[in-house]
Design a protein around this nucleic acid. Structure first.
Lengths: 335, 335
DNA sequence: TCGGGCTATTGAAACGACTCATTCGCATCG
DNA sequence: CGATGCGAATGAGTCGTTTCAATAGCCCGA
């Protein structure tokens, strides 16, 4: 059925070893032999069988990436950064979407383990530490993405979410807002928790500021809309005068809800700021203020760290890289 | 290093064949043997090596999906639909992003071929027919996504883009617009070409309607913004009174540009309609009218067709499925 | 007690590429 | 003319799983 090195060897009248050499170290083979073998390859339409290669050297040429939500441009940007850097190292990225669901997260880890993946990049959801330790014992290193570890046992690439939260709420304070609502959840997601901590810090530092939490079940446009509707259901006096949403998807949802109410409340009545600065933020009903993270850079850096771990072996000092977020002010927090 | 069936067999004091049977047909094995083997598996932390399985049965348990742009929510939706359906059949989806770039497209096809992928779903860019024929000869069927074939030699799932184009422009006509601009490109992308054809048809059917083309190099927010700026650079009298953008990303970009100009021109001066109805369309500065496609359904249907081809063997009658698009009217074409 | 009919288990072969110790052929040198 | 050195080519063995024909063991009926 499928053409194998053996067929190529037969046709070129050389041994399989030579074919393999032509494929992998052509300089070790006499020029005319190379030509002959390559001709045979073309004539027969030979294509390497990756499974056989993988079997032989015990690991695949892919790295697994598990993100919380592919529908979130922040993560597709990370994926793109990772993919580009991986391609330079002749590696492929397998993209898994945990969808903020631990079962899916686990099932992707299972898959990656069966595939003997080169390494794993993960934006973890549940408590996967034990799992990752096991992978490491097997020789598959992990880099945590968008998350710092408490201990130093893993490499990680993250953005300082506490600082980001502070950035957002300080900004709201600076435009005179005092009754802040934090929209986000579940709190088990570390990014959400940290952004809230940062927000709380800033709130405490501001005289007369109150901070309430409106919690959501996921970081999606839909959940944001629900939160926005809950706010609009209140008496106007009971509403916050500023909202900090844990990410842009939520913020856009909130914005939709506030706008469906008819009058345009943002930013006069209610200021709104999101997080991630996805491409759509600037195109929103009211261009959205946000906290920008260097997403592609996160992805490519994660791959760099991973490759370093792969090369370094066990006795590698894990590295924790933390980027700083950046405030982006637009109309939604004007005045 | 890695634990193999052999180790499990030794520990459970059975043969490797029996371990394999426990893994694949536990009903053929005596109950207490099953228990013993499973215990050994847990104790040793055995995980199947996928490469070896693939090598054995000649193909992987993945299907390859090549899309034009992962940053476009339309395609991530398709991917999600495909992934869910594939998971039901215990298959994985490898997502490749051609980025509207034939070199990348080819390189993903190479990769999938080396991986002996189960089948390929592709939203083709260049002329890949020959390539796909070759894959088919190797036993790897293809389903074209978001594209109908001219001949009937491939299965395909598509949406009637000509109808969609007509839908959009007829709608613009119905709200009294006559000087239409079509923003889109490159024309080599079939979706773009078809939507334009549909637009032209509708334009011709409308008395006094003119249709100009403002062409772009890609279907991105950035390109859309450039097109919008080009329009704003004109004398107001020279500007169109309605814009049909080939997709929502472009439309959002155009919208940004028109809005940066300060005054809010949409929809009074210029009506705007996009295509795809991505989730962000309704959250735009001016909620965007669009033409909706059933994206997740496209993805899952494509996998269905693919599986049918895999099962059906060579003598399978290829199926062409065409969905109808649907007009979604929002503020950007109000009045 | 022997044989037939079961079920449970075995173990070797096969999948395809890669590696590496070995061999081959040839030219150069003493 | 034999020894030495060197580049080129070889081919068996390996990776881990699955398959399948063959075997082992067992019970039951004749």
């Amino acid at each position: 059925m499928s053409v194998s090195v053996k067929d190529v060897a037969a046709r070129a009248m050389v041994s399989v070893g030579t074919v393999s050499n032509v494929l992998n170290r052509p300089d070790k083979v006499a020029p005319d032999t190379v030509t002959r073998v390559q001709a045979a390859i073309v004539e027969l339409g030979f294509v390497r069988n990756d499974a056989a290669r993988q079997l032989r050297d015990g690991r695949s040429r892919s790295i697994g990436l598990i993100v919380l939500d592919v529908a979130n441009p922040f993560f597709t940007d990370i994926a793109r950064g990772a993919e580009d850097r991986a391609a330079e190292a002749h590696l492929t990225v397998l993209l898994g979407n945990s969808d903020e669901n631990t079962a899916r997260e686990t099932s992707y880890l299972d898959l990656f383990e069966e595939q003997r993946v080169h390494g794993v990049l993960i934006s973890p959801l549940g408590d996967v530490r034990a799992r990752l330790e096991r992978l490491r014992l097997r020789g598959t290193p992990t880099v945590l993405v968008d998350r710092q570890t408490d201990d130093k046992s893993f490499s990680s690439v993250a953005v300082d979410d506490v600082a980001g939260g502070t950035l957002a709420v300080s900004h709201l304070a600076s435009i005179g807002r005092r009754r802040i609502a934090f929209v986000g959840g579940p709190g088990s997601i570390r990014q959400v928790a940290d952004r809230f901590i940062g927000a709380r810090t800033a709130a405490k530092a501001t005289a007369g500021m109150t901070l309430e939490v409106i919690s959501t079940d996921a970081l999606t446009v839909l959940e944001g809309r629900a939160a926005g509707q809950a706010i609009m259901a209140r008496e106007p006096a009971e509403r916050p005068d500023a909202i900090f949403a844990a990410n842009d998807l939520l913020a856009l949802g909130v914005l939709q809800a506030l706008n469906m109410a008819g009058v345009s409340l943002v930013p006069q009545e209610i200021a709104l700021i999101g997080y991630d600065d996805i491409a759509f933020a600037s195109a929103a009903v009211v261009p959205l203020s946000s906290v920008r993270q260097p997403s592609e850079l996160i992805g490519s850096t994660a791959v760099d760290l991973l490759l370093r771990e792969v090369a370094g072996g066990d006795e590698f000092a894990h590295e924790q890289i933390v980027f700083q977020p950046e405030l982006v002010v637009r109309d939604s927090t004007a005045g």
